[in-house]
Nucleic acid binder design. Structure first.
Lengths: 225, 225
DNA sequence: AACCACATTATCGTATACTATCTTCATTCC
DNA sequence: GGAATGAAGATAGTATACGATAATGTGGTT
């Protein structure tokens, strides 16, 4: 973590700070999260740090073992598969409900998001736009709890999707798939949109699982060498 | 809460104690949860109480407003609808994956659970068996995260299902539907099982929503009278 | 030299105490 | 008489301090 600059964050921001650091990869998988250190670097005491960490545990971003402390959750490939399968089911439901209520303005906005995503060179920005696109597709469903749940589940794989963006041709594939999904939405064909979305998400899951497996092999080779 | 007897609970149990009290209705919807009171009655300080409450917030059982405290979550009928719809989607997926791996022993165990449920006179026991039946159907899917998520979402409506059991012929309807679902599983027909399960859950959602609406009417009449 | 007992250190977890915020109610002013 | 003001009490939220637990290191024994 290299001595975070003393950003005197208001206690309200402790949770957001930690979550962002995990999602953008500054705190990598498996990284132990020492309460005292975090408290010092955030300029608060342990109590609000612990509370933030417990919330992150509930979100699945952090793991905890009694009396042994917190650490950034490390995903196995099977778990990634499972999470992406859940995402597929939930997001298909959301888009199925959303498409009939989707306005032309929403379609136009989604198109703009895709346009910008195909132009940007920033990984962070692409990640943001990726989420913005997905979220926009589900919003007309008007299901706050469903959307909140989708967000929470998605966060658990966000880090790994960022890795995919850098490490493969995932990005162009995703962009193509996004276009076809949006085309189905524009035709108000929710069945097609849902099917395409499921395929898109499940394929992402396969790629993440493959990446995690390769990483595991690299790690074991390293520790043997 | 009527002065809980000083059950000197180990701090580890604080969370479970509170959750049980909410699920079984001892702490009704909207009930304010005062940290000092809870701490005193559980024999610990505020810190572990706050941590337990924050976890319950993450589970959706408790709501929190900054500087105004915690309270047992109060469901609107639209939210109940939404949650049951999510349940339907997730549990259908689970049963779809589980049925092909379902052993005859599992079918037999499920039958036993339904037998006992039809005989018991205890609401609590029926509620337990209801959950045990559902959980058993999904376990062969071997998807820990999915099952955990189903459990968490189900908890949010558990209280209201208990009310249904007492207040209507829900119980016999549910028992009949459980039998047909199990029959489909026994034939290893996962599509049928999934469709029947969806119908079962969505109907439960309708009944909960209706109950909540009637309750809202009663409350407003009461406050007007 | 390998293994166990014990001391030492680091870290977690929580009780206590204090501050900040909100609520309530009495008082004052218009 | 009603609204504005402010003091007092209640509750939330957090810093500090301390005890508990796990990890680590050291000395002694076989």
């Amino acid at each position: 973590m290299s001595k975070t600059p003393p950003k005197r964050s208001r206690p309200t921001d402790v949770l957001a700070d930690l979550r962002d650091a995990i999602l953008d990869g500054s705190l990598g998988p498996g990284k132990p999260l020492r309460q005292d250190k975090l408290a010092a670097s955030l300029g608060v005491s342990k109590i609000p740090v612990r509370e933030a960490l417990l919330r992150l545990v509930a979100e699945g971003l952090v793991s905890v073992e009694a009396n042994r402390g917190f650490a950034v959750t490390r995903l196995e490939s099977e778990e990634a598969d499972e999470i992406l399968d859940i995402r597929a089911v939930l997001e298909c439901r959301a888009v199925l409900l959303a498409v009939p209520h989707m306005s032309d303005a929403t379609i136009a906005e989604a198109t703009q998001i895709l346009d910008e995503a195909e132009l940007t060179t920033s990984i962070d920005r692409w990640g943001e736009l990726n989420w913005a696109f997905h979220a926009l597709l589900y919003e007309p469903a008007n299901r706050p709890k469903l959307n909140q749940l989708i967000r929470q589940i998605s966060n658990q794989t966000e880090r790994y999707i960022r890795v995919l963006i850098t490490n493969s041709d995932y990005r162009s594939t995703a962009e193509r798939e996004h276009r076809t999904i949006l085309a189905a939405c524009a035709l108000r064909n929710e069945e097609a949109a849902s099917a395409l979305l499921a395929q898109h998400i499940r394929q992402t899951g396969d790629l993440i699982a493959r990446f995690l497996d390769e990483q595991a092999v690299r790690n074991s080779q390293q520790s043997e060498g």
